[in-house]
Simulated scan of single mutants.
Amino acid sequence: MAHLIPAARAARASLATKGRSLSRDNLADAMRDDGHGVSNARASLLLKILKAEHDVTTIGPVSVRPRRQEPEPLSEVVA
């Protein structure tokens, strides 16, 4: 199943450029047009995966800039 995820992502991009909605039937048709055999059950699961990817917020160097921290002022040492 994991080997179909890149094909599903490509099909999603293709649908988006054509202005077509992301649905199970459209996804399956686009994947089949690209030569990938996919059942309706697998297309349903791939659709869930693609929608979950869309809903996930990535946290990391790509989406968050590190904040510049100013050095803390030196405190007085009392001896």
Rank of each mutant, 00 (worst) to 15 (best):
A2F: 06
A2I: 13
H3N: 09
L4M: 14
L4K: 05
I5E: 08
P6N: 08
A7Q: 05
A8W: 04
A8L: 00
R9H: 02
A13G: 04
S14Y: 05
S14H: 10
S14E: 09
L15F: 08
A16W: 00
A16D: 01
T17E: 13
T17C: 05
K18F: 02
K18A: 14
K18M: 07
G19M: 10
R20N: 07
R20K: 09
S21R: 07
S21G: 01
L22K: 01
L22E: 03
R24Q: 12
R24L: 09
A28E: 10
D29Y: 00
M31A: 03
R32I: 13
D34H: 07
G37K: 10
G37P: 02
S39I: 06
N40R: 06
A41Q: 15
R42L: 11
S44Y: 00
S44Q: 08
L45Y: 05
L45D: 12
L45N: 10
L46W: 08
L47H: 12
K48H: 10
L50H: 12
K51I: 11
K51P: 02
A52I: 02
E53W: 09
H54G: 08
H54N: 01
D55A: 15
D55M: 12
V56F: 12
T57C: 09
T57E: 14
T58S: 11
G60P: 10
P61N: 13
V62G: 12
V64H: 13
V64I: 14
V64L: 14
V64R: 13
R65V: 03
P66Y: 07
R67L: 15
R68I: 10
R68H: 11
Q69P: 00
E72C: 13
P73R: 15
L74W: 09
L74G: 06
L74M: 15
S75H: 13
E76Q: 11
V78P: 02
